[in-house]
Design a protein around this nucleic acid. Sequence first.
DNA 1: GCGCTAAACCTGAATCATTCAAGACAATGA
DNA 2: TCATTGTCTTGAATGATTCAGGTTTAGCGC
Lengths: 151, 151
Amino acid sequence: MKDTGHPHGAAAELRSAGLRVTAARLAILDAVRAGDHLDVDAVTSQVRERLGHVSFQAVYEALHAFTATGLVRRIEPAGSPTRFECRVGDNHHHLVCRQCGRVTDVDCTAGEAPCLEPADDAGFLVDEADVTFWGFCPDCRRDSEEGSTHD
Amino acid sequence: MKDTGHPHGAAAELRSAGLRVTAARLAILDAVRAGDHLDVDAVTSQVRERLGHVSFQAVYEALHAFTATGLVRRIEPAGSPTRFECRVGDNHHHLVCRQCGRVTDVDCTAGEAPCLEPADDAGFLVDEADVTFWGFCPDCRRDSEEGSTHD
DNA sequence: GCGCTAAACCTGAATCATTCAAGACAATGA
DNA sequence: TCATTGTCTTGAATGATTCAGGTTTAGCGC
C-alpha cells in the first residue's frame, strides 16, 4: 500500500534531487522500487520491457546519479554484481543467500549509523557499520534438504 | 613472536592441507602472511620479487586452494579487488578506509560466528555475520584535515 | 634412481561488470 | 524560441577474474 502515490511523485523527486525528468529515469527509479535488490542487468530488462531500447550506460549513469543524490542505495555483496534498493535513510542490513544470491532486508536493531562500534577503531573515523548476514534462504534450504539424505 | 616457527612449518601446513609443496606456493603463503590484506596483484609482485616469474594464474589457483582449505581467508570489500589475510579461524571483522582502501582487523566482541543475529532471519539459515566498518584511516584523516580549512 | 599420476604451472584467450569517450538529442529555464 | 547542459547513444576500453589446453614436476610406489 506504499505506492509512489500522488501524481508526478517520482517526477517531483527527481526534480528536487536536481535531476531531469525523463521516461528512462522514471522507469529506472520505478524498477528499483518495484524490484527486490535488482542488479543493473535486471533493472535494464525491466526498463526495456516498458520503453523499448534503453542503453546500459543510461541505466548505469542514472543509478549512479540516484545513488549520489540518495534516491536509491547501492549494495555490493561479495561475489555478486552491484544491486540497488529503494530503502534509504534508515540503516538496515542484509541477509544474503550463499546459494542463489538472493538479498533480503533486515532491520537494524540500533537504528542509526554506525549502529555498531568496533572493539578498537585503530584511529579510524568510523561512520558506518555494514552488516551482511550470510546463509541459505528458505528456498535453497528446502532444495538442499530434498536433495540430501532425508533422515 | 608468532613466527612460522619450526623448520618446514609452512611446508608441513601445505602438506597437511593436502597440497603439494612448491617454491611458488611457499612464497605465496608467506606473502599473504607477511603482508597486510594484500590483493592478488600485490601477492604476485611479492612472489615475483623472490622467485622471478610466476604467472597470475598460479597465484589465483594457489590462493583459491588456500582459501578452500582454510589456510587463508579471503575478503572482498565493496569497490576493491579481493584481498587475502592469514588470520583464520577466529571471527574478526574489518575497518576499511573509504579513501585509500586500507583494511585493518578488528576483533570480534562476540568471538564466534555468527557473532550477531539478525533481528528477523526471514527464514534464512544464517551461519555468518560479516561486519565491515567504513570510515577514514588515520593517514587519510590527517591528509584531509591539512587540506581543508584549518579553523 | 625410475616412472607414473595428478597436482601445479604455463601461455593465451575469454568473460563479466563497469567505465570512458565523443557526439547527438532533449528537458529545463530565460 | 533559443541556449544551456544534462541525458542518452554507440562503440571501445579497462580491470579483475576465469576458462582452456598443453607442459612440467612433486609425491609416491617400485
